[in-house]
């Protein structure tokens, strides 16, 4: 039997700390409860006539919400009472400062993409986003990165508009042929 190379699997079962797991369990229960008692009553319209209760539009969502609540309970109970396996590696959920900054920057880029799309156009937004991400991830292979940032969106644009017949959003500033 060939032993598959698995560098990732050797460091044991990755776990979160018991405190984190408990918080997750409680959080899941809160989400389930919010769905059941806040979202379903307010955002699911039930028609005037429901001949059979199981046919109500809210029937399935309610079952799902209860499932989530129960599972949240099980998760919390397990975090409280079950011992962790001996070879567990506890992962830390905390984010270091540079990591946090990078995540924030990425979030800003993603938000920027969405809001700039209709105004600037998909091609130009993609070019800028590509270039920014290359810079954000350390700026290695910078020259290639900048070339790819220009070429890839253009290639995709021509493929989708000319071959596949999809109208890629052009924006209001510069239109491509």
């Amino acid at each position: 039997m060939p032993a598959a190379p698995e560098p990732l699997a050797f460091d044991g079962v990755h776990m979160l700390s018991r405190r984190d797991e408990l918080l997750i369990g409680l959080g899941v229960m809160v989400i389930g409860a919010a769905i059941l008692w806040w979202i379903i009553p307010n955002y699911i319209t039930t028609p005037r006539r429901v001949p059979i209760r199981a046919l109500s539009p809210a029937f399935w969502p309610k079952i799902i919400a209860w499932t989530i609540i129960v599972c949240g309970g099980v998760l919390s109970a397990r975090a409280l009472f079950a011992p962790a396996p001996p070879d567990a590696v506890t992962d830390d959920l905390s984010v270091s400062r540079p990591e946090g900054l990078r995540l924030l920057a990425l979030g800003a880029i993603l938000l920027g993409i969405y809001f700039a799309l209709p105004i600037v156009g998909m091609v130009w937004v993609s070019m800028i986003a590509f270039a920014l991400l290359v810079l954000l991830s350390g700026g290695k292979h910078l020259a290639w990165g900048m070339i790819a940032a220009v070429v890839l969106p253009l290639l995709l644009y021509f493929f989708f508009t000319k071959v596949a017949g999809v109208a890629i959003p052009q924006g209001q500033i510069v239109r491509l042929p």
Binding site: S126, A129, S137, G145, L152, L156, I168
Partner: peptide, 14 residues
């Protein structure tokens, strides 16, 4: 990787 992932993002958007 640092060119692949931005490329994937652009590809996903299109």
């Amino acid at each position: 990787s640092n060119l692949l992932f931005p490329g994937v993002l652009v590809l996903c958007i299109f």
